[in-house]
């Protein structure tokens, strides 16, 4: 941890202390109940929890890779945790689905069509989706699984089990114009789209992480021995910075790459 930021740990130290105290307090006064759980699975009327093992009978191709997935970090095999972790925490209680012989959306929820089960736990993402600029997930035009694989190894990549997923593949399936080949490509594309964009939601147009030249200067190192001089490349940009953001002030407008200009001016 960076020394300048040690003071930043104070708030969450307090938070940890509060959390542990609350937990201890509650543990001494409450009793366990199957009607109370920290995860609220989608409701399937009349169904009860059956556990992952039952799901494996038909969905082995998913359950056998699940121990390698990000969501397995929350999975407990203990029967008392059925519905709190594992398949049914996202898909709902499975007994009626099994009784009906399975089938797509037959007495089972598919978070691929409805993001609500995902947002039950990922509340901070729900908050981001409510910002002015966002992907239309809450509006029902997109779903979490358009970009994420909830069962696979790397949740930030395309579905496909344990492998063969590539950086920014999920963005490229819609944003072809930005991810196409260029004669002169912006090196920043090698670092991935999320270096500059906040995909769930942002207060900034184009879902940018920052809105001014600070975004660019993080990587385009400036040599400022003389405070009045800011070198980007070997060009003093000090007079340009005041004109606006690097890509809005009429200069580097081809931010993803250019077909004709090596300095990405257009």
């Amino acid at each position: 941890m960076h020394s300048s930021r040690l003071k930043d740990w104070a708030p969450f130290s307090f938070l940890i202390a509060c959390a542990i105290s609350t937990l201890l307090l509650l543990s001494s006064s409450s009793c366990s109940s199957t009607t109370r759980s920290v995860v609220v699975p989608p409701q399937v009327e009349g169904a009860h929890y059956v556990g992952n093992q039952k799901c494996e009978d038909c969905h082995a191709e998913i359950t056998r890779q699940f121990p390698g997935s990000v969501h397995s970090r929350f999975f407990k095999e203990d029967e008392s945790y059925h519905g709190v972790s594992g398949c049914e925490s996202c898909h709902g209680a499975g007994s009626k689905h099994i009784q009906a012989g399975g089938g797509k959306n037959v007495f089972i929820h598919n978070p691929g069509k409805d993001p609500q089960p995902c947002l039950e736990c990922h509340q901070e993402k729900h908050a981001e989706f409510s910002l002015p600029q966002h992907h239309p997930v809450l509006e029902g035009q997109m779903n979490c699984v358009d970009c994420h694989d909830p069962h696979g190894r790397d949740i930030f990549k395309q579905p496909g089990g344990l492998g063969l997923a590539r950086q920014d593949q999920q963005c490229a399936q819609c944003h072809r114009e930005q991810t196409r080949s260029f004669v002169f490509v912006h090196e920043g594309m090698q670092d991935g789209c999320t270096t500059c964009h906040q995909p769930h939601g942002s207060i900034h147009d184009k879902m940018l992480t920052q809105r001014d030249s600070n975004l660019c200067l993080r990587c385009h190192s400036q040599m400022q021995f003389d405070p009045s001089q800011v070198l980007v490349g070997k060009v003093d940009h000090s007079a340009f910075l005041s004109m606006g953001t690097c890509w809005t002030a009429g200069c580097h407008t081809a931010v993803h790459g250019s077909m004709v200009n090596p300095r990405l001016l257009y």
């Binding site: 009906a100 012989g101 399975g102 797509k104 037959v106």
Partner: peptide, 8 residues
């Protein structure tokens, strides 16, 4: 139906 339903 668990095994001999519509789904696989």
């Amino acid at each position: 139906f668990q095994c001999h339903g519509d789904e696989r």
